Computed example of a mutant assay.
Amino acid sequence: MTPQLLVSPTRIYFEPAAADLPRGREVLDRFPEAERVEVDSHWRIPELHGDEANAQRWVRIKREALVLGVKKSLSARPNGRSAHFIAPSTANGCAMACAYCYVPRRKGYSNPITVFANIEQITGYLRRHVARQGPMDEPGQVDDAAWVYDIGENSDCSVDALVSDNVRDLVELFRGLPTAKASFATKYVNREMLEWDPRGRTRVRFSLMPERTAKLLDIRTSPVGERLAALDDFRAAGYEVHVNLSPVVVHDGWLEDWRELLEALGDAVSAPTREQLAAEIIMLTHNQALHEVNLRWHPRAEEVLWRPELQEVKRSEGGGVNVRYRRGLKRGLLDELLGVVERSAPYLRVRYAF
């Protein structure tokens, strides 16, 4: 999907404080023909968030709306799986529309991109946080030598880079931090990022799933084949390249689909890329509220995502009703998939699987 089809703002909602900052002015200047609507808070925009009618305009809102805000609270939360820390967000929301995505649960319904304009404050905080950590004492499953900061927990950085320079600023920040790395997962191939010279200090985790499932669930993303074709190019451009095998969705023929994908992965990457490649495997977690929204705009997705006969309820820390594959069943499913990985991609180091 071209950048113009993915995100073409016709209306920008902005907090006045965001519009006064250099990054906010840059974003507004990038889309001069977009209507501008002043708002008190990027969290409270009724026509975007919390209106059930938006389920019928899900994709249109993602393409045509953009929000400018200021990130109020800055903290680096400990993680331990994908990264050591979750960095303060420089954006939230997304122009893509993956049917299983947890991000819409944060603000409700479509949740288009919100760009945080106080990027200098965020990068300053991160620089100080990294300095406080000092060198890493011993290797672990996250990384052998560097503190890793996930910079894209609530958005897709490759798409964020289409509307602001925040992600580029973060890549350039970590390029100069010898004890730390940035990291983000993505489903979009943004080849402009190949010119950024990250010097090994940014880890890009390309999310992969079998093509048959991706066509149903990964809406408005780069095709899986395009993601596979980008792996060598991003490694050659100076990124550390990993893959996320996620979410793993169980359906008839799922293991055979994953075998085909893993064989395609091996065919797509060169020996230098294969040597540094690692994977995270994440089984599907779904959400009751998102299930109900999806039934309004993409009911076919729910035929594979909502499987009560296989799933159990798990309440989130915020009280939401999530569903995941039943505990006893999930372990067996994971072991089956790990067996496929071992046979079809024996070079692929699995950093963690859950």
Rank of each mutant, 00 (worst) to 15 (best):
Tyr125His: 07
Tyr125Glu: 05
Leu126Val: 06
Arg127Trp: 02
Arg128Val: 09
His129Pro: 08
His129Ile: 02
His129Met: 08
Val130Ala: 15
Ala131Lys: 13
Ala131Val: 06
Arg132Lys: 12
Arg132Gly: 10
Arg132Ser: 11
Arg132Gln: 10
Gly134Pro: 12
Gly134Gln: 02
Gly134His: 09
Pro135Ser: 04
Met136Val: 06
Glu138Ala: 14
Glu138Gly: 12
Gly140Thr: 00
Gly140Leu: 00
Gly140Asn: 07
Asp143Met: 10
Asp143Leu: 07
Asp143Ala: 12
Asp143Glu: 08
Ala146Arg: 12
Ala146Ser: 08
Ala146Lys: 10
Ala146His: 13
Trp147Gly: 01
Trp147His: 09
Val148Lys: 14
Tyr149Gly: 02
Tyr149Asp: 04
Ile151Glu: 00
Ile151Thr: 15
Gly152Ile: 00
Gly152Cys: 03
Glu153Val: 11
Glu153Met: 10
Asn154Gly: 11
Asn154Pro: 08
Asn154Thr: 04
Ser155Glu: 07
Ser155Val: 07
Cys157Phe: 04
Val159Pro: 13
Asp160Met: 09
Asp160Gly: 10
Ala161His: 15
Leu162Lys: 05
Leu162Gln: 03
Asp165Cys: 05
Asn166Met: 06
Asn166Val: 00
Asn166Pro: 07
Asn166Phe: 01
Arg168Leu: 10
Arg168Ala: 12
Asp169Arg: 12
Leu170Gly: 11
Leu170Trp: 12
Val171Arg: 06
Val171Cys: 15
Glu172Gly: 13
Glu172Asn: 12
Glu172Phe: 05
Glu172Met: 07
Phe174Met: 03
Phe174Leu: 06
Arg175Lys: 05
Gly176Met: 01
Gly176Lys: 01
Leu177Glu: 11
Leu177Phe: 00
Leu177Met: 05
Pro178Val: 00
Pro178Phe: 02
Ala180Asn: 00
Lys181Cys: 14
Lys181His: 14
Lys181Pro: 09
Ala182Gln: 04
Ala182Val: 03
Ser183Arg: 09
Ser183Asn: 08
Phe184Ile: 01
Ala185Gly: 13
Thr186Asn: 01
Lys187Tyr: 02
Lys187Gly: 03
Tyr188Glu: 02
Val189Tyr: 14
Val189Gln: 02
Val189Lys: 10
Asn190His: 12
Arg191Gly: 04
Glu192Asp: 11
Glu192Gln: 13
Met193Thr: 01
Leu194Gly: 04
Leu194Gln: 00
Glu195Phe: 15
Glu195His: 15
Trp196Gly: 13
Asp197Trp: 13
Pro198Ser: 13
Pro198Gln: 04
Pro198Phe: 13
Arg199Thr: 03
Arg199Asp: 03
Arg199Ser: 08
Arg201Val: 01
Thr202Phe: 07
Thr202Ala: 10
Thr202His: 09
Thr202Glu: 09
Thr202Asp: 11
Arg203Thr: 15
Val204Leu: 09
Arg205Thr: 03
Arg205Cys: 04
Arg205Ile: 01
Phe206Gln: 02
Phe206Arg: 00
Phe206Ser: 08
Ser207His: 12
Ser207Ile: 09
Leu208His: 15
Leu208Phe: 03
Leu208Ala: 06
Leu208Ser: 07
